[in-house]
Structure formats: structure tokens, C-alpha cells
């Protein structure tokens, strides 16, 4: 477990830096330090927390914000599925903690470390999970406390921070040219639907679904992939 904790340190520092920024923004959206700590621990999914708080701040709707956050977490199905054999090495109570702590930053690290050293397993994953949960929760709470002390954050360009974070996250997910059509259609259709008067939450879900559908058209039907 200690090995995992040490291995995740560099990544945890990066997570803490944008966790702090997220905390500042969550305070702007009206979340208290206790609320930010609860969200960090129980949700522990940075991208979806940012998306949900952004939607909540801009639209004020709980369901739309929760849907946006939950939809971004669909990738956890694949992430968790890839570490199931490692999770099964742990007894149940710690298995649940590691399950909750499996995320973008540590699952790839654990899988690649296991390739070079087959002894790396559940306890290593648990160490990385605990390190990341601690870094994320502490940094978001610290950001929330600082954010609550600074009035008129919008004057400092902070309102754009979420959009910039989404741009950076999208860069991280960019799979190559095959994504041009689905991503472009999602972008254009979402803007068009909002201009036509549709609420943002509905427009972005419809835009994203249209993007996924177009991927089957432009990049081939999976049944025919051979």
C-alpha cells in the first residue's frame, strides 16, 4: 500500500492543484467547506464534479447538473472493469474503498506497474486510491475556504476557469482524427440548440448523443468492424 501511495504522489500533486481551483469555484457556486468535503469524498470524480457545479452555477437546475455529471462518469464502467481482477485480491471492506478510489489518474498507473511487476496488486491500488482521495478532498476544501473569502471572483476571470478545464480534459481524451466529426457535431449542435432557446442542460445532452450517433455513421458500424 505504501508503494502505491509513493507512486501516486506526483499525480496527486497535479490533482491537488486543480482541486484547489475547483474548490474556489465551488465556493462561488455556494458550496460550504463541509459540502465540498462531502462531495470530494462521496463522489470523488473530478471531471463530473466540475461539470455538475458548472451547470448548477449557470443554470440553477439540480437534475440537469446531476445528469451532466453522471453522464461524464460513464467511463468509470470501463475503468473499473479493467481493474476488477486487482480489486478481487482485496477483502470486502477495503475492496469497496479501492472501488470508490479507482479513477482516471490511478487505474492506468496500476495496470502499467503490474505489467512490469506482477506482484503489484490490490494493496498498491488501495494506496494510490487513498493518496488521490486525500489530495482531492483536502485541496478542494482548501480552495473552498479561500474562495469564500474572495468577493467578486468573476472580475478575476474565474468564471472561465471551468470552460478552460473542460478544454484541457477534452485534450486529454482526444483519440485522433476519428473524433473530428462526433466532437464537431456535438459542439455545433449544442450551440445551435441553445441559440434556438433550448435549456443548456437538455441541449448539451442532445448534442453529445448526436455526436455519438454520428460516430457510427462517419467511423463505421461496430458490427461491420471485422
Amino acid at each position: 500500500m505504501r508503494q502505491g501511495l509513493i507512486a501516486i504522489l506526483p499525480l496527486a500533486l497535479g490533482v491537488a492543484a486543480y482541486g484547489f481551483a475547483f474548490g474556489v469555484l465551488a465556493a462561488e457556486a455556494g458550496f460550504s467547506a463541509a459540502g465540498i468535503a462531502t462531495m470530494g469524498t462521496l463522489v470523488f470524480a473530478g471531471t463530473s464534479q466540475i461539470a455538475a457545479v458548472d451547470q448548477f452555477l449557470s443554470t440553477g437546475t439540480v437534475i440537469g447538473a446531476a445528469l451532466a455529471g453522471a453522464a461524464l462518469n460513464l467511463r468509470y464502467i470501463g475503468i473499473v472493469a479493467s481493474v476488477v481482477p486487482i480489486l478481487r485480491e482485496l477483502p470486502w471492506p477495503t475492496r469497496l474503498i479501492a472501488l470508490q478510489g479507482a479513477t482516471d489518474e490511478n487505474f492506468a498507473l496500476v495496470l502499467s506497474a503490474r505489467k512490469t511487476n506482477p506482484k503489484i496488486g490490490g494493496r498498491f491500488l488501495l494506496g494510490t486510491a487513498l493518496g488521490l482521495v486525500a489530495a482531492w478532498t483536502c485541496s478542494t476544501v482548501a480552495g473552498g475556504i479561500v474562495g469564500a473569502q474572495i468577493p467578486n471572483l468573476a472580475d478575476y476571470g474565474i468564471g472561465f476557469a471551468f470552460t478552460a478545464a473542460f478544454i484541457a480534459m477534452a485534450r486529454g481524451l482526444w483519440p485522433g482524427r476519428a473524433a473530428l466529426a462526433p466532437w464537431g457535431i456535438s459542439f455545433a449542435l449544442t450551440i445551435a440548440l441553445i441559440q434556438l432557446g433550448l435549456p443548456s442542460a437538455a441541449a448539451l445532452i442532445l448534442g453529445a448523443l448526436a455526436g455519438v450517433s454520428s460516430d457510427f455513421v462517419f467511423n463505421g458500424n461496430p458490427k461491420n468492424d471485422g
Binding site: T47, A51, D54, S58, A68, A71, L72, L74, R75, I77, G78, F162, T163, F166, I167, M169, A170, L173, W174, P175, A179, P182, W183, G184, S186, F187, A188, L189, T190, I191, I194, Q195, S200, A203, L204, I205, G207, A208, L209, G211, V212, D215, F216, P222, K223, D225
Partner: peptide, 25 residues
Amino acid sequence: RFWQRVLDVFPGCLLTALIASALAR
């Protein structure tokens, strides 16, 4: 393959839609 494709493509599409919804206003 259907679900694999959906799970691969959806997060990126949703992120670009989120960026679009912020820029639309």
C-alpha cells in the same frame, strides 16, 4: 462492440458539448 464504442466516444462528445454550452452564452 456497440457499448465499447459508446463508452469510448460519449465522454469526449459530452465535454465538447459542455464547452459549447459555455461559449453559446
